[in-house]
């Protein structure tokens, strides 16, 4: 089974709101002192793929479309024990729309060769468009199942468990298929061993430019044929919090209960 996991490097999404700034010229978050990290759902995807490989075998290639620095995310994935890594360097628009991303990834996947299972995170922690998997599936002409948290296989093909608003569903799917991965207690990403981190820097990592791919590189570079960010702002919405006081724990809790009661009575 040939497995491709698409991963994205992003600005650390855990930067607290009070430290968050915007670069209005570029219409994106200011880098500030924030780290670059792998998007958490992409790591959940890799973890899901690694566990699937342990049960069913296969070869995992991690693929990223991003700047040179995305190499760090791919090296970390190799340290987590992905088999191969490829980076398509984005020398075009700094935050391409999801359609441009899907087309770049699709072209790279076709270049990698035969594929059975493609995993992507359900959305990214920066723009969070939540479209890459679906558009990638359409570009490749294969089905897409969203919000998957577990993958198994049997003689009929793949068994995909996915979360719904109310519970979960199982899909039977014949590869090739694209799945988008969501978090679950079982796919919390493993921490690579120090030795494997060091080893990962000696592994080969394929680098392509858009011109190496069989696609319309110019339109991917231009991006924004799908949609364009025309403005980016920080919404102001602070509420004044009343901290409940009182002489004793009992009286504070009573005051809290009264405030809760007032609100629920008015509903």
């Amino acid at each position: 089974m040939n497995i491709v996991v698409c991963i994205k490097q992003i600005l650390d999404p855990e930067v607290p709101a009070r430290d968050f700034r915007i670069d209005s010229e570029r219409r994106e978050a200011a880098r500030g002192s924030a780290n670059l990290v792998t998007n958490i759902f992409c790591e959940n995807a890799l973890e899901t793929a690694l566990q699937f490989r342990e049960r069913a075998g296969g070869r995992i290639t991690v693929l990223s479309f991003g700047s040179e620095s995305a190499e760090d995310s791919l090296r970390k994935a190799l340290a987590m024990k992905a088999d191969a890594a490829a980076l398509v360097i984005n020398d075009g628009h700094p935050h391409p729309d999801p359609f441009a991303v899907a087309r770049a990834l699709a072209a790279a996947i076709r270049k990698i060769g035969d594929f059975d299972l493609i995993l992507v995170g359900r959305e990214s922690g920066d723009w969070g468009a939540g479209q890459t998997g679906a558009l990638l599936a359409e570009e490749l002409g294969v089905p897409c199942v969203n919000f998957v948290d577990h993958i198994d296989s049997d003689s009929d093909g793949l068994r995909l468990k996915r979360q719904t608003d109310a519970g979960w569903e199982i899909f039977a799917a014949k590869p090739p298929v694209v799945v988008t991965i969501t978090n679950d207690e079982h796919n919390v990403p493993r921490v690579p061993k120090t030795r494997d981190v060091m080893m990962s820097y000696r592994q080969t990592l394929t680098k392509w430019t858009l011109d190496d791919l069989d696609t319309d590189a110019a339109s991917i570079r231009a991006a924004n044929s799908y949609y364009e960010i025309v403005d980016l702002l920080i919404p102001v919405k602070e509420t004044q919090c009343e901290f409940i006081e009182g002489d004793s724990l009992e009286s504070r809790v009573e005051n809290l209960a009264r405030r809760i009661q007032e609100v629920t009575d008015a509903l």
């Binding site: 999404p13 219409r27 978050a29 969070g128 949609y227 364009e228 025309v230 980016l232 702002l233 920080i234």
Partner: peptide, 20 residues
């Protein structure tokens, strides 16, 4: 058509113009 949606985990809001 222009839409507003929250981005960066709710820390910013983007106004997005649809092209297609």
């Amino acid at each position: 058509l222009r839409v507003t949606r929250s981005v960066y985990g709710g820390k910013a809001a983007a106004i997005i113009e649809l092209k297609r």
